[in-house]
Amino acid sequence: MSQTITGDVNEAGETGQSVAAAIRAALLESDPHAKVMATRRVARDWRLGRLAHVFDVAMPDEPGRPETPELLPPNRMPKRGKAGSERGRIALWHAIAHIEFVAIDLALDMAGRFGAGMDRQFVDDFLSVAADEAIHFALLDRHLRKSGSHYGALPAHNGLWDAASETRHDVAARLAVVPMVLEARGLDVTPATIERARAVGDPAGARILERILDDEIRHVRFGANHFAATAERLGKEPVNLWKTLVSRHFRGTVKPPFNDSARSAAGLPLGLYAGVA
């Protein structure tokens, strides 16, 4: 069910609604299209000064989810099929679409859960990330539909949101794990996926991934910058703090191959993740 963001407009142009309430409403939206629209609206209203810089409501432990896709543990996910097959291609695009759909909620939750304790730029950055992820998902869902499928047609796993749950009490841990590990991994694997799309005659898919890669470099940079500022505020050395938090809160492994040039552009120097794998 769609949750509409409403509020009376005052002389300052604000709706009278807090940014936290608007973020929470977008998080709880379960319909994918409505979540995309709500997220873009929150980001736009915040950018235009229509939402009060107030954090007066808590973020939900779980975001709204559509009835499909069915969410399975990672070890129960079906095989994608042979590389290059129609089934395999659709499974790949569906998996990427799911990543981008969950990424909307990750960015919204980052801004809404931790914004009260951070500076305004933090909210600016992660609401802009949320809007980017919403566009990415919409592009991928449209690409799936042109391929004769749609988001929700296949099962997916909930591992990305598990990372949010694990770090819900600590902004430094959330920054260390989500943008600086999970999104950074996208920098490593996306170039090869772009080449695969081109190789099978899918230039439209390759262009979508090129856009995602460009945006994700900026997203990771936001995370790295705010992590460094948080470490300084805590009086901690950033590299050691990052390694400690990743070891404590990330259930997977940080392993090569790494896209060193993209990581460097995103503010992740080699010295940060060298020796972690």
Rank of each mutant, 00 (worst) to 15 (best):
Leu140Tyr: 00
Ala138Asp: 08
His157Trp: 14
Leu144Phe: 10
Ala163Pro: 04
Ala134Asn: 09
Ala116Asp: 04
Gly205Tyr: 11
Leu139Arg: 02
Gly117Lys: 14
Phe122Arg: 01
Arg168Val: 10
Ala184Phe: 02
Tyr151Glu: 00
Ile135Pro: 02
Arg168Ala: 11
Ala131Val: 08
Asp188Glu: 06
Thr167Asn: 13
Arg113Val: 10
Gly205His: 07
Ala131Thr: 01
Ile135Ala: 12
Arg145Tyr: 05
Ala164His: 12
Thr193Ile: 06
Ala173Ile: 09
Gly148Thr: 00
Asp188Pro: 12
Ser149Ala: 08
Ser128Ile: 01
Asp141Ile: 12
Asp119Thr: 03
Pro155Trp: 12
Ser165Val: 13
Ala176Tyr: 05
Pro191Lys: 12
Ala199Val: 02
Leu108Ile: 01
Asp124Phe: 02
Ala197Thr: 00
Met180Tyr: 03
Leu140Ser: 01
Arg168His: 09
Asp132Val: 07
Ile135Lys: 15
Arg145Cys: 12
Gly152Ala: 11
Trp161Thr: 05
Gln121His: 04
His136Thr: 04
Val178Asn: 10
Thr193Ser: 00
Ala116Val: 05
Val200Ser: 03
Ala164Ser: 12
Val123Ala: 05
Gly148Leu: 12
Thr193Gln: 11
Gly112Arg: 12
Val171Ile: 06
Ala164Gly: 00
Phe122Thr: 07
Pro203Ala: 07
His136Phe: 00
Leu175Asp: 00
Ala199Asn: 09
Ala116Ser: 09
Val129Met: 08
Ala164Pro: 01
Val200Glu: 10
Trp161Ser: 10
Met180Asp: 05
Asp188Lys: 14
Pro203Ser: 06
Glu195Asn: 05
Arg196Thr: 02
Leu140Met: 11
His157Arg: 06
His143Asn: 07
Pro191Met: 10
